[in-house]
Design a protein around this nucleic acid. Structure first.
Length: 279
DNA sequence: CAGATGCCCTGGGCGC
DNA sequence: TGCGCCCAGGGCATCT
């Protein structure tokens, strides 16, 4: 499940690969992936024949700024992949829904078995400008360089359980189920704690854990789980899964206290934590 | 209005 | 070998 570190890894790959280049033909074979557009042909016509000016990220969204003040926005959902094919000759993998060919060779493929991901074309409002469809997103901990004081202020303005709050994209953009669990463990607090019960010290620990874990996960090029669904632009897996402390480690020994990692279900979703290390 | 639930969707793992 | 079942969950709509 691509979250901030995985999307950032793909953004960096994409920046090196396509900035300055011009799109050629665009092929849409899965209309669910471009569902914000009335028809796939209009989407394809809007994307083709433009120069890629910059590739940015806001939370879990990728923004490819194109000439003509347009932005191609990509959200990978649960199982989406962006894969670069240098030759263009090799057959596209199963569940390839969109293919953007580039002048001078190479193509970008959007592959998404579960079809929760999507692409859409919108107005950019200039390079680094605001995309109206993403106006609801909160600050991005990495891209917006949020400091500890701003985080504490923001935390103090809300009264909600910590884990859903960390995952609320209007509160903070980019954190999903996996990194929320890792961050909460890193901070030594439980996800079902209410935000207003945190001491100033705990709030600072939460901020530090968030920044450290996201930074290390980006350095590790993201997390690929057992299904190896997450791949970078070149189809390679991430390495950060080796550093997971709680996520997916139900029943396993806590690396800090040797206690057992617990899994609980809330709203049909799993949370992993260490009862010994998190209060 | 916070919180819970259901829906979208497919591949993989498991029990039989 | 294969079938049915369950699980993964981001984002959004819809309730209480």
């Amino acid at each position: 499940m691509p979250e901030l570190p995985e999307v950032e890894t793909i953004r960096r790959d994409l920046e090196r690969q396509v900035v300055g280049r011009w799109t050629d033909s665009v092929l849409v074979s899965g209309s669910r992936s471009v569902r914000r557009h009335p028809d796939a042909a209009a989407f394809a016509a809007g994307v083709q024949g433009r120069q890629v000016l910059a590739v940015q990220r806001r939370g879990k969204y990728l923004l490819c700024h194109l000439g003509g003040d347009h932005a191609l926005v990509v959200h990978l959902g649960m199982s989406g992949q962006l894969l670069w094919a240098a030759g263009g000759g090799e057959p596209a993998p199963r569940h390839t829904h969109v293919v953007v060919a580039f002048r001078g060779g190479g193509e970008l493929r959007f592959v998404d078995p579960r079809t929760f991901g999507q692409l859409f074309l919108t107005t950019a409002g200039g390079p680094g400008g605001t995309v109206p469809e993403l106006a609801h997103l909160g600050l991005d901990p990495i891209a917006d360089g949020m400091d500890a004081a701003a985080f504490a202020r923001r935390l103090g303005s809300r009264r909600a359980r910590l884990k859903p709050l960390l995952m609320d994209q209007r509160f903070l953009a980019g954190i999903g189920n996996l990194y929320a669990d890792e961050i909460l463990f890193g901070a030594g607090v439980r996800g079902d704690r209410s935000s207003e019960t945190l001491s100033a010290q705990e709030a600072r620990r939460l901020y530090r854990a968030m920044m450290e874990i996201l930074t290390l996960a980006i350095e590790g090029r993201g997390s690929s789980l057992a299904d190896e669904q997450y791949r970078d632009l070149y189809g390679r897996t991430g390495r950060y899964q080796a550093h997971h402390q709680v996520y997916g480690r139900e029943g396993g020994p806590c690396r800090r206290c040797r206690g057992r990692i617990v899994r609980v279900q809330t709203g049909g979703r799993s949370s992993f934590f260490c009862p010994g290390c998190q209060r």
